[in-house]
Design a protein around this nucleic acid. Sequence first.
RNA 1: GGCCAGGUGGCAGAGUGGUUAUGCGACGGCCUGCAAAGCCGUUCUACGUCGGUUCGAUUCCGGCCCUGGCCUCCA
Length: 470
Amino acid sequence: MALTLYNTLTRTREAFEPRDPERVTMYVCGPTVYNLIHIGNARPIVVFDVLYRLLREAWPQVVYARNITDVDDKINAAAQANGESIGALTARFTEAFHTDLAALNTLPPDVEPRATDHIEGMIRMIRTLIDSGHAYEADGHVLFDVNSMEGYGRLSGRQLEDLLAGARVEVEAYKKDAADFVLWKPSTDELPGWDSPWGRGRPGWHLECSVMAETHLGETIDIHGGGQDLIFPHHENEIAQSTCAHHGAEFARYWLHNGYITVDGEKMSKSEGNFFTLRDLLQQYHGEVIRLALLCGHYRQPLDWSPATVEQARSALDRFYQSLRNATDTRVADSEQSIPDDVREALEDDLNTPLALRHLHATATALNKATDPAERHRLKAELLGGAGLLGLLATPVEEWFRGAGDSDGPSAEEIDALIAERREARGRRDFARADAIRDDLAARGITLEDGPGGTTWRRSARAEVTGQQA
RNA sequence: GGCCAGGUGGCAGAGUGGUUAUGCGACGGCCUGCAAAGCCGUUCUACGUCGGUUCGAUUCCGGCCCUGGCCUCCA
């Protein structure tokens, strides 16, 4: 497989070659579980899910780790604000995270380590860093000494002097250098804490990822992914910790970062408040619609989120599903699905999902046109296989059309009865009655389609219903 | 101030040194009792701006303008 990936570390596209072809490793930064994730948080999950699927096509074993951060000051604050225990809060939002992601048809990672299960490893790594002169204890804290490391700042492309010049935060007096970051900090009795050689305390943010990657994937991992906003300081600091703790061994060979979701051109972020939670979006749209919306643009480009973005994704999916619905004459077993070369090649080219979708559209068009049974079978198998690599078209066709839109419309039983009545009316050539039934259903959000195999129906998209009423 | 992305047709969004992206939308036709879906065709002379290189640039180089981001928690 000729996979090319853009590596943030070198700022170039590179041919991907796993360190060990028998065991490809990928680590993606997961959520801090203190609230519901928003669509911006979902983007990397979906993007790297596609990469995971692609890698699994080419290599026998891919180990994908995605962490859960369940110790963090934001968690402490949220628990206190809710009057809820920290354990209950993190359990609740971990569960919510899993539920929301399942709706997006993402594969579970092979390992989902939790920070609180790795405290021992963190303490061990801190000790190694202190012993090797890369960390120091000061005022109850343990800090990483950025000046002890050659090449600090390489990933984010910045010099220590620049960091100082731009520092907007008051520098703690105990830091030797303003850029030094916390590995361990003291906890009060009320806060979560663990005993350590430096007293009862809790880990700094960046440390957990270094330790969990080491524990589950080894000292050197192939791919490390996350959103662009993690490049600095999070990933920069992970590199510092891991590289120094492993005596210079390379931490991650390919660094991948997805672009932001924006709203009206501005970055979506929790602190700005301009975000949509995935939970809310799932109330309005099928998970596949949201998934496709995320894949409509290249992963490294910003993606502006608006109702139009999602409606467009829905239209595209309707088209794909319609194509499948028009091809019920040929059955494709799961084992018969095949990935078209052009779709695979588009994804191998730094995950060019828009180009892959273009090929999928061409496949759908060809399927709509094809008359030869063998060709129809092949095209349907390719449409399903190609879409499957993107994690799409996973919903049974009838469920797609009948379950879409508002759920408070007429029931399937009522619709079927009306269709039967209408068929009878059409048989009598009583078109006035037949059309009345169809118009009545249309007004209630149901579209009828008379095909060679009889009449099928679909729930109209919400926007269409609104549009007709307006 | 330092650093980094990006500016493509009505919208979304790939890509390429010379030949159709694609989807959505709009318009016309075929099909249909009429529709819907599908198919065919058309539409918008698309590539921020000014120079340069070139036989030829949206595509390479440089200046400029604009937008967004990072330098602080953030996917």
